[in-house]
Structure formats: C-alpha cells, structure tokens
C-alpha cells in the first residue's frame, strides 16, 4: 500500500513517460533506437504493473509485469536487433502521407479527441478520473501505433507500430479489468508469432540484398494486377 497522493503522482509520471516514448517512436528514423525506445516503453509498462501490484496486491498484476519484462523488454527487442543485422538496413527515412512534425501534431489532436469522446459519450464506463486517463492514454497510444503502421515504409517499422498498439491495449487492460492470466499468456504468444512472421516477411521486402530480390522475382507469372 502506498500513500494515495504519491501513488497518483507516480502513475501520472509514468503516463507522461509513456506518451514521450510514443512521440519518439512516431518520429524516430534510426531503427536501432526505435527498438530501444520500444523496450523502454515496455519497461515503463512493467513498472506500472508493479506499482499497481503494490497498491492493490493482485497477484495477476505481478505476473503481467514479469511477462512484459521478459518478453517485451528483453526478448522482442533482441530478436528485432538480430533481424536488423541480417537485412542490413539501418534507417527508415521515408514517411508516407505525414512528416514527423505533422505526425506529432496529429497525435496531440488524437489524444484530445479520444478525451472528448470518453468524457462525453462513454462517461459511465469510467468510475474515477485515473481510469478515465488510462482509457484516454491507452486508446491514444493504440491509435498512434496505428499511425506508425500506415505512415512508415519499412515493414520492420510497421511491426514496431503494431507492438506500440499492443502496448496501448495492455495499458488499457491493466487498469480496466485484469483478464484471466491464461488469456494474457495466450495474447503474448500470439504477439510473438506475429512478430516472428512479420520479421520473416520483412526479409523479403526490406532486405537490401540484391540476390534475394532476384530470387523473389523469378516467379514472374504471378506478378500481375
């Protein structure tokens, strides 16, 4: 049990950090730092789960924290770094539709719109202000992740966008309702499989290796609209 005011302060501080990492993910061009930022964001979520565990004492939260720490801060970033070495691409310079500055602007607007939506329409869903805030930040984080998916060119960056979305959902679930733990595990497994699959697919699209492209284009007859 922590003092309520301190507890609120800690949680609010962590929210600010999460939004900061989200802004960095949207604008970052270097892929290595992108993965590190993602790891940091997941770490913040894990810390938040631990703080909630200390406050409420639900064992479930502790498990979620450990799972997040093991999979999202350690395993997935390591795996992505490994993939990056193989595809010999260092940076993702291209932004489609949105420049980094306008992305930030749009995400600020997104947060505001989600806030308006939740206070006006879904008011009865959220018991107190803290949960409302979590709802807003969780959904906004998911939408920001979606923005990364459609505004970035490289598949590997899109993958990080998807992971950010998932972090938003995790944040939302931490406060709204602790799902049965088995379901949390299954979701993480599902996440892992998506990451592995899209990383394998990224070899085909992102790879800078010429011979790989030649090998892919050999099957010319399937290439038609």
């Amino acid at each position: 049990m922590i003092d309520t005011i301190i507890f609120n302060d800690i949680i609010h501080g962590l929210f600010v950090l999460i939004l900061g990492t989200a802004a960095l993910i949207i604008t970052q061009r270097s892929l290595t730092s992108l993965f590190n930022i993602y790891a940091a964001q997941s770490l913040i979520l894990a810390v938040m789960a631990i703080v909630l565990f200390i406050e409420y004492g639900t064992l479930n939260l502790l498990f979620i924290a450990i799972l997040t720490l093991a999979v999202k801060t350690i395993f997935i970033p390591l795996f992505l770094h490994k993939v990056l070495k193989r595809i010999s691409v260092k940076r993702d310079l291209q932004f489609m539709f949105l420049s980094p500055a306008s992305s930030i602007l749009i995400s600020a607007i997104l947060i505001f719109v989600v806030y308006l939506f939740f206070t006006n329409i879904a008011g009865d869903l959220f018991a107190d202000r803290l949960i409302l805030l979590v709802g807003v930040i969780g959904i906004a984080l998911a939408l920001m992740g979606m923005m990364v998916i459609f505004s970035r060119k490289r598949v590997i960056t899109k993958t990080v966008g998807y992971l950010t979305m998932e972090n938003g959902v995790l944040l939302f679930s931490l406060f709204m309702a602790e799902m049965p733990f088995i379901i949390e595990i299954l979701i993480v497994l599902d996440l892992l499989m998506i990451i592995v699959l899209s990383a394998v697919l990224a070899f085909g699209i992102d790879s800078g290796m010429e011979e790989f492209h030649k090998k892919l284009n050999r099957l010319g007859i399937w290439i038609e609209d």
């Binding site: 992740g145 998807y162 998506i194 697919l201 085909g204």
Partner: peptide
C-alpha cells in the same frame, strides 16, 4: 508462392487484420 507480391499481400492481410 514466393513472389514479392505475395509477401506484400500477406503483410497487408496480417497488419490490417491484426491491428
């Protein structure tokens, strides 16, 4: 079918459906 277009199609499917 290992054509580049198949990978794109597959990725599009995975990303849209999963998001």
């Amino acid at each position: 079918l290992k054509a580049r277009e198949n990978i794109t199609a597959s990725l599009k499917y995975v990303f849209i459906a999963s998001s």
